[in-house]
Write a protein that binds this DNA or RNA. Sequence first.
DNA 1: CCTAAGTCTGAAATCGATTTCAGAAATCGA
DNA 2: TCGATTTCTGAAATCGATTTCAGACTTAGG
Lengths: 363, 363
Amino acid sequence: MDKKPVIAPKGRQQPRVKIEDVARKANVSPATVSRVLNHPDIVRPELRDKVMRHINDLAYTRDSAARALKSGRMRTVGVIVPTLALGIFAEGVEALQNRLSESGYTLFIANSQYDQRREFQELQSLIERGIDGIVLVGASHGRELRSLIEQAGVPVITTYVAKAGGGIPAIGIDNESATREMTEYLLRLGHVRFGAIANVVAASNDRSRARLEGIQRALSDAGLPLKPSQIVKADYSLAQGRSALRQLLTDHPDTTAVICTTDTLAIGAMAEARKMGLAVPSTLSITGFDDVELAAQMDPPLTTVSVPAAEIGRGAADYLINAIAGSPVPRSVVLPYRLVMRSSSAPPRSSVRPARRGRSRDH
Amino acid sequence: MDKKPVIAPKGRQQPRVKIEDVARKANVSPATVSRVLNHPDIVRPELRDKVMRHINDLAYTRDSAARALKSGRMRTVGVIVPTLALGIFAEGVEALQNRLSESGYTLFIANSQYDQRREFQELQSLIERGIDGIVLVGASHGRELRSLIEQAGVPVITTYVAKAGGGIPAIGIDNESATREMTEYLLRLGHVRFGAIANVVAASNDRSRARLEGIQRALSDAGLPLKPSQIVKADYSLAQGRSALRQLLTDHPDTTAVICTTDTLAIGAMAEARKMGLAVPSTLSITGFDDVELAAQMDPPLTTVSVPAAEIGRGAADYLINAIAGSPVPRSVVLPYRLVMRSSSAPPRSSVRPARRGRSRDH
DNA sequence: CCTAAGTCTGAAATCGATTTCAGAAATCGA
DNA sequence: TCGATTTCTGAAATCGATTTCAGACTTAGG
């Protein structure tokens, strides 16, 4: 960071065109100029056009601070995501911003790094900025945060989950149900020795927790409950997917199906499987979650769950726009996920490998 | 989008605490309350504490619109990226936001989808919002946009490039030099039959154009100028990397080294190479650009150029914070890139494949 | 004890746009 | 042509916080 001071920035040169300047040029009152901009239909057309010409001539733009002060509306929404490093969040934010932009809203962005304290601070800062609405991710939020929202009276919606506590509306998918279906699919293929890799390290990652629960529930229901050692906890990095698979197969070499709560983990797991010389899917089936761009391009293509991130973003935008306008809004929106069966999953090759090598179960 | 209207949002319930309310409770004037918040040191300590207590009691927070109106400063910065779908931009934005947040700034985000018209509109909207600074990406911006910035008198910095025209400061890497080095490296390995895959479809993507130029220049200098058919233009998707490689090898089956201007393209190319049964790197060397997380995890790991995205984001934040404060700032900052030699590149296996199959050069 | 210097505090103007209210102008019917 | 509507427009109040300016109070020095 060795910047050599070279130039001083030139300050705001022109004093900024005010509504009064336009009014004077056009020989009307500021009130009329304001009306031309806000309620064009109640101004006589010729007059309106004349004023508009002067507005364009002077390149006048309204001071949003003054506007916001008078109207009490900033036309601004904030979003706090755990991180932008995950494509799934980046995609949702992008869709959110695009939809908001269409309606004249601007988007503040912040990230929490999966830290509830940071999330609270960022939210506080956004609320002080006077945002009209707030988008969160997931259902795990401190009660402190909820009461802050309550007190500020700002419409809020949480995303990527099907439901959130505390009366907060949600838009997203049913994560638990998705992994349960995925697990049932693998059960139907004939798998009986499962492993799970879940990014449940961050306390606030309720999506992955729900996904893990879906796996556990399905397997319990099938009479094959997962032992703790069959569940490897990780963060959200690809490298952890690799090491997780290695650990899993060290403890349970006879595993035939590994369910990951994230594509990133699954891709890491596949890379490691390849390195270990395990054929996917013939020796080991691996599944992911999210359906990132790369998933379809893997070799073999990854079986995963497709999450409609863009739709979640758009839906959150629509919700807030309506809520801010005082229009009636749904309590929650559950969007459909989609199981995408690709070639990383197949029936187990039960006969080829020894079923059990006589190791004691609990080492 | 079939939301059933269910509940109407409850509006802002309390009328919001104003500075006057605090003043009345504390038996002082609004001026004093303001001073306690803005210049604590000029208020008598006991009085200051008393006022602070009441501020906390009432949970008073200043109305940022009124504040901004009076002070002319929003303490807000805007960023416009082409897209958030590219991890490299998401990473930069995240770092930018984190650094800004530390200094009490909030970040507006917008995306242009590589469309200069959209970029202009989004910028216009941000400027109307009264942002104090703006971060752009790349050097290709319409003169319309530059004059808008000039006229608004807002500090600006552009990122991911080493220099930008029109007096706009930049922070980033020298893209052309990076690919030139990469190409020279491959030349040193002994390659003579090159192909390039470049995402130069979007008119405003000057990064990739510069990267392509670096490749061309290095090869021209080596007496091996690329023919148009050796350059395949693509967008930034993985699938296009696949089809680009296929096309390249159809036209030039004897290619031994493929340089991609993006890791995404390179990863697509590697996937396709594998599918075509071409061994990487023994038959075909492939290189990328960006050093995304996945690059190191590929099989074989991808040779690429590491871009310090987080540092770019932080640097942009620092630049704007200083510029806004009126501190002297550098004209531009060139950050070092790093060539990461991994196993996707190796000397050509010149003896094994036929050098030329007697096809006419220009078909 | 009284004036001079120094410290604090409050009243009021200010930032720029919006909107109510009332008055002026235009339109219509008789 | 005159009065009654209807349509438009402008003057002025307003949003909430900041800051200048001047006055009140305290302290110190003579």
